[in-house]
Design a protein around this nucleic acid. Sequence first.
DNA 1: TGCAGTGTTGCTTC
DNA 2: CGAAGCAACACTGC
Length: 296
Amino acid sequence: MPELPEVQTIVTDLKKVLPGLKIRDIWTDFAKMIKQPKSFSAFKKQLAGRKILDVKRKGKNILINLSDNKTLLIHQKMTGHMLYGKFRETRNKKQKWVAAPGPLRDDPQNRFLHLVISLSNGKQLALSDVRKFAKVLICETNKLAELKDVKNIGPDPLEKSFTFKKFREILSGKKGGVKDVLMKQEIISGIGNIYSNEILWDAGVYPFRQTNKLTQAELKKIYQAIKKVLKLGVKLRGDSVVDYRDPFGRKGGYQNFHKAYQREGEKCPKGDKGTIKRIKKGGRSTFFCSVHQKLI
DNA sequence: TGCAGTGTTGCTTC
DNA sequence: CGAAGCAACACTGC
């Protein structure tokens, strides 16, 4: 689910409320999501009593920086989302935690709580995740750079240092379709299926075009589209076409601005008489305009 | 009712 | 080695 704009929205929001709070208690009903340390009791021990210092993003990972050289890393994968608010424990076997009245309680998307971190202000930071693909781990902060999840991740496309020159460099000699390459986190971080479709629609490039055959003009257009599309995504606080919610349970707005994603059969919004086509490959869909993104 | 489809990643297979 | 398929899981909608 969450790609760069969604994770950025979450991190920006959490950064406003979490720093300064202490972790009091941790609950889970799905210890399998905890990758490090191996046991839930060790995980709990490493978190309890620590103070939250900062919240950051690395690609699609959320990094919660804690006192005593600890960092909590969360990757939400497909359907995970981080929620912040007032929750209480119940005796209901199906719904073990319930939020105070409001969007966190009323929206069904926010009810699949599998990790709940109780904080010193009486509120909770919770991970809701229907499909249970999300993962969390604890790492020593000063060893974060050596962690695979951090080390093997390409440059961030919204950083100032992500110049056209750099973009050209990281793509040079890369094989495979350009859409697949844009989604490879070790090459460039933060782009997933929704935004890659939207970026290539905007750039006017056929998604399966071989990366090493792209012209300078096409590279430039893709580069500009990456910045444009992701910035708009951040501005609109993410894309809730399916189940994304911000930490307060609210939807983002980008789903109202899709040009290609999930618009199969519709006329291309460019007004070029094209139709949005869909091609399924490797279990996921690619959407593009049959006219202005034609195969060159 | 049953099955295709869903934002991710990483392992297996060819 | 690279590309493709599929598994992890649960739910929705046709």
